[in-house]
Amino acid sequence: MGTAAALRITLERSLQHRFPAALTPSARTIYETASTGIPVLDSLLDGGLPVGAISEISGQESSGRTSLALSFLARRTQDAQVCAWVDAGDALDPESAAANGVDLRRLLWVRCGTPAAKPQPSKPGTPMAATSALSQLDQALRSADLLLQAGGFAAIVLDLGSIDPASAMRIPLATWFRFRQAADHARTSLLVLGRDSYAQSSAALVLDCAPLRARAAGKAAHQTVLTSLEFHAERGRQRFAPAPTPIRKPPASTWSANCTWDISTAPATEKRA
């Protein structure tokens, strides 16, 4: 035995009554993550979205939440896994999902709400009226609960992006806690899309998204084709971070999503803040 090792053991024994294993690094659990399919975000999130936990992707409309979720589902379905999209506002566009590479045969889509009973939104980009949102929200929560309890789904997206934050904030914490337990038990990644963060302490990860800028083809005065949108993503909370984040500005990245008609091979601009 080397001198350093012997010295360490001696010190630990002498301090054992005050500091157990004072000089031995504590054991650390490595949590499984799954790639989002966007390298810069994978880097920001230390590998991707956590498996068996709740991840919240929050932000206003046009902040890239849906593109990110579809990119994540595309990777999961291409690995022969099964995913579900619980759509509280009936807003999913299957063409966008297919364009992102989601295997639609492996995607279960639950369209909450009844079109005939759905009233017109009061304002574009704002949530549904609270009276209808409650019933739609109730359907979405019940559906997500059933899917989590059934097990076998690699990822479930609970899309509350069209729901009034005031209604979604009223979801009891016990519900989120139950979702967290079920997701952990089933090894399911539960993604919650919303205008705000709702799960609070039950969320393992919170990613705040915001729109940054748009890019178009052609000269400035004659731009007729939108080619991509750039988004800003900021890591708000990460319970299973390998290394504790120092108290300073939270880590963030910018990433972009190209329009389906943009066939240019140049990689989109992405950078880590």
Partner: peptide, 21 residues
């Protein structure tokens, strides 16, 4: 059997729409 991505472009992230219905 999972559906294999048809080409490299499917590996890129495309802009998604949220439909109003």
């Amino acid at each position: 059997t999972p559906q294999k991505p048809s080409n490299a472009s499917s590996r890129r992230t495309h802009l998604a729409l949220r439909r109003m219905r």
